[in-house]
């Protein structure tokens, strides 16, 4: 390990963190703006031009609100809950390949923090860890409604991890590798995108991503209108802000995942035919990747303002009785196609 290598990775980590935090921040504004447009309104437009300073105002408000820790709460765990939530949300972006290599002064810089060879599983593990933040927060509040909310959130999260994992398995059978870097590199051009090979898998993955991010139509952990607020009932000030924030970071990361796993990541059509230099291809690739991510974030919000919420038994029914069998059927189908392809073509 040379010093330059560590420095390079450090810079990359800082950039990735900053970008994901800023995007999460502005997702809140985007969400409200999109909600407004879809309901024939303007959305927030008072702070700055077109409401551009709104997230800063919201953040400031969160910091200055009164911090309340309930008397009966378990204090260390009460603080640990939102901390874990935001940490797990942040570290999952470590294995996402943001772009190809960039040559700066004869030095090749890989635009990925860590290309570990079990990258997909790593993300899966971190997502599984995210449940702890919710469960601890709910339990430590010493409030039965928080606890029920936490249990509801955790069981939803665990249930939807299974079809998510199964849909990824079908994808891995196609790609033959667990490394995120290689999975994206395989999808160069337009025809090689995994969405063409795994449409059902993508659908399952997307539905599960919605559920894992607690987004509508699966936002039962906190449904504001009919339940008190779920696991973060007792939270106020920036602790509540951290929970909200982690949700938006999760949305960003799962959008990045969907773009990377199924929609070719930084690959774009005719990337080598246009006769651009390596660095330009990389830079355009990164931009294209972010364009895809923003597309998915938009889709998340679009769905939120379209679909109503599931009832809890419907949610569980969808997860266990439809998605899991469908995902297993998808695995079998994929395996059959691969065998036929390998033997006859």
């Amino acid at each position: 390990m040379e010093g330059a290598f560590i420095l390079e990775k450090l810079i990359l980590v800082v950039i990735v963190f900053t970008i994901s935090l800023v995007i999460a921040m502005y997702s809140t504004l985007a969400e409200r703006k999109i909600a407004g447009f879809m309901q024939d309104r303007h959305g927030p437009n008072r702070a700055g031009f077109g409401g551009i300073l709104q997230p800063l105002c919201d953040g400031g408000k969160f910091f200055f609100k009164e911090e309340i820790i309930p008397a009966g709460a378990h204090k260390p765990l009460f603080v640990l809950g939102p901390t874990l939530a935001i940490i797990t949300a942040c570290i999952s972006s470590a294995v996402i390949p943001w772009g190809q290599t960039l040559t700066i002064g004869g030095r090749e810089v890989v635009l990925q923090v860590a290309d570990i060879n079990v990258g997909v599983l790593y993300i899966f593990g971190v997502v599984a860890l995210g449940v702890y933040g919710i469960m601890l927060g709910g339990w430590a509040s010493n409030n039965k409604f928080s606890l029920m909310g936490a249990v509801r959130a955790a069981s939803q999260s665990i249930s939807y991890e299974i079809p998510m994992g199964l849909s990824i398995i079908a994808l891995l059978m196609v790609t033959g590798t667990l490394s995120m870097g290689e999975i994206v590199a395989q999808q160069s051009g337009f025809v090689n995108w995994n969405i063409w090979a795994q449409p059902i898998g993508f659908l399952i993955f997307m539905v599960c991503a919605f559920a894992e991010c607690n987004r509508v139509p699966f936002d039962l952990p906190e449904c504001e209108t009919e339940l008190i607020g779920g696991y973060h009932t007792e939270y106020s000030s920036m602790k509540l802000g951290l929970y909200m924030f982690s949700e938006y970071i999760n949305m960003f990361v799962s959008s990045a995942l969907m773009a990377a796993l199924y929609f070719g990541g930084y690959n774009f059509p005719f990337m080598y035919e246009l006769g651009l230099s390596e660095n330009w291809i990389t830079i355009i690739g990164v931009l294209v990747f972010f364009l895809k991510i923003f597309g998915f974030i938009f889709f998340f919000m679009w769905v939120r303002w379209t679909l109503p919420r599931f009832r809890y038994d419907q949610l569980m029914g969808l997860g266990w009785k439809i998605l899991i069998p469908l995902a297993i059927a998808n695995i079998v189908l994929t395996a059959a196609v691969i065998i036929v392809k390998d033997t006859y073509f």
Binding site: F37, M38, N45, W302, W305, T306
Partner: peptide, 21 residues
């Protein structure tokens, strides 16, 4: 049905906003 619903909301997305600032 979901696709239909999404179609309706995206149509509203590009509609002229009647709100007066």
């Amino acid at each position: 049905a979901i696709a239909k619903g999404l179609g309706i909301t995206i149509r509203h997305f590009f509609k002229k906003i009647p709100t007066v600032k």
